[in-house]
Design a protein around this nucleic acid. Sequence first.
DNA 1: CCCCATGTTGTAGG
DNA 2: TCCTACAACATGGG
Length: 261
Amino acid sequence: MPELPEISLFKDYLNATSLNKKITAIEFLHTGSLQSPKEEFIKAFKGKKFKNGIRLGKYLLIETTGDKALVMHFGMTGKIEYYKNQDPPKYSRVVFSFEDNDHLAYLSQRKLGKLFIAEGLEDFRESQELGKDALELTEKEFLELLEDKTGSIKGVLTDQHVLAGIGNLYSDEMLYQSKIHPKTKTNAISEKDKKQLFKQMKKVLEKAIEKEGVREDFPNSYLIKHRKGGKDCPACKGKIKQIKVSGRSTYFCPSCQKEEK
DNA sequence: CCCCATGTTGTAGG
DNA sequence: TCCTACAACATGGG
């Protein structure tokens, strides 16, 4: 699930369920995601409370009553699940148990997610060399970021070091909504189109948060509902095409999104 | 069996 | 330096 909109939902979910309760135990069903030894996690978080979840690109940073923050990354298939009185959900890798006997599980089916211990928000941002969050960017900053880039626009949008939060699914969507071919060289895009892309970037991310990432609930004019090679483009009745851009499967409409070089 | 999947990272080459 | 292609990680679904 996890690009910026999904992490935003995880953040709200965490803040609604798991704050201000003492963590009485941390159980590790699989340690592959840990970026520090598990003893360090126990030392940093056992006996502490989660105070506040903050989204940072595709990362969820959780401030605690201790002096360390817990950071979750979800890879391609991760999520969190709050539960009580039952076995951990399938694919649970780490389980935090609270003083009221409820639990928060960190799940990662494909084990591509990561858990970090961080000093704080800025510190973590720097250590990961993360770009500014896509939802916090101003138009001016966005235009400046694209300024000197020669690579494909899709590659730039999904480069977390340039701007943080956009992945494969939603980059295709905002390019489709902006009628820009994903392979277009970034510095070949007109000022007008870049401003349009900025607008669509915000709109698409906000719409996805509003719809809670549920594909079926998006407007029919969204590519996400037709994201498969050979399907009809909702705007022009052409066929959606699949290609590879920046190593990722990319879907677009060849007649709406003309390739300009 | 094959290919595909909302991510990241390291390597090799132009 | 910057960019692209590709493999690797690990697992499940069609």
